[in-house]
């Protein structure tokens, strides 16, 4: 597939999903080398009131995928190609100016990297009210009220007092909760959360997830990037598994975890630790994720796959449907072995 400029004005897809991503490709420019393709033809839908999990190893392209949709890529990245339909508009064809009106207002974001989301020199109050004031959603005193409420909602004790502190004066988990409050305060239609609960204890995690369940019930769609398969099972309706910039399996989350079809998904489950499972030997996936500059030919997982004995594994693997709602990019997946 080549990366060409998108052709003429185009129409939104027929699905009534909140966000429809189609054939997303993202490349980074490199010195004296071909651009590096890190997202390679990713498609998925996010429905209103539903959550989609994106899982996969470090470097598989999860963050770059959502950053492409948000148009928050570093300068070294090319403008992503493909489509990302949201409220009848293709986000990939909007100007940065138009995107700024959508980000923070219609799409809330919780970043993986706290340092990026929080300005260390501003109090929580300034940061939490910023989007409300900048987008002109409400006046100063209401903004403050909503900010305090949002902090309380994410379980920060004494929010009226805490709103006056600076980020460094919070514990890691409180900072993470403050970021979630910041993303929710404008009541966006779509919330994109990159590893939102890694720094909190499991009771706070449950509290945050239940809060997000409340948002879903009110129609908010959520994309959640997570390494925690327990979180995915509890909160996310659908899941996509990414490997080397591509979707290798997609399914309703419980089905994915109960009966993983792609050998890579099976590998992720084998590496997971679980309370009470301390006697089970860990089975880390051998080797490491591929260097994207030297993508293995054929199925990119084959150098690490225990089942890669057939010459068919040397061929490109397309996502093939298995039943109504599932698909996997492995020729063996159909047979369910």
């Amino acid at each position: 597939m080549t990366l060409t400029q998108r052709a003429e004005p185009h129409d939104p897809p027929e699905s009534d999903a909140l966000l429809s991503v189609r054939e997303l490709h993202t490349e980074f420019l490199r010195e004296q080398a071909e651009p590096l393709r890190v997202v390679d033809g990713v498609s998925f839908d996010v429905e209103r009131g539903k959550a989609l999990a994106i899982v996969g190893e470090s470097g598989s392209g999860k963050s770059v995928t959502v950053r492409s949709v948000l148009r928050l890529l570093p300068r070294t990245a090319r403008t992503p190609s493909g489509e990302a339909w949201f409220h009848g508009r293709d986000l990939l064809s909007l100007s940065q100016r138009e995107m700024r009106r959508i980000r923070g207002r219609n799409i809330g974001m919780v970043f993986q990297n706290a340092a990026e989301a929080m300005n260390p020199t501003l109090t929580l109050e300034r940061q939490l009210t910023e989007h409300l004031l900048w987008h002109g959603i409400c006046g100063k005193s209401e903004a403050r009220e909503r900010a305090v409420r949002a902090l309380g909602d994410v379980g920060i004790p004494e929010p009226e007092r805490r709103i006056r502190v600076y980020p460094f004066q919070l514990s890691g988990g409180m900072r993470q909760r403050a970021m979630i409050a910041m993303a929710m305060v404008t009541e966006p239609a779509l919330l994109i959360a990159d590893e939102p609960t890694t720094a909190v204890d499991v009771t706070v995690q449950r509290q945050i997830l239940d809060l997000l369940v409340g948002l879903k019930d009110r129609g908010t769609g959520v994309i959640m990037i997570t390494h925690d398969l327990g979180v995915a099972r509890y909160f996310c309706d659908q899941a996509v598994v990414m490997y080397a910039g591509r979707v290798v399996e997609q399914a309703p989350t419980s089905e994915l975890l109960d009966t993983p079809r792609h050998p890579y998904t099976k590998g992720l489950l084998g590496s997971s630790v679980e309370v009470g499972g301390q006697e089970r030997p860990l089975l880390p996936i051998p080797g490491s994720p591929p260097d994207l500059a030297h993508r293995p030919a054929g199925c990119a997982f084959h150098p690490r796959c225990a089942q890669a004995e057939s010459p068919r594994c040397q061929e490109e693997q397309e996502l093939i449907s298995i039943g109504d709602e599932r698909a996997a990019a492995c020729w063996k997946a159909e047979t369910g072995r």
Partner: peptide, 17 residues
Amino acid sequence: DEPTSSLDVSIQAQILA
């Protein structure tokens, strides 16, 4: 202090080992 919480499950398994 949280040495594996930013890591994915397969790398976490390696660091634990």
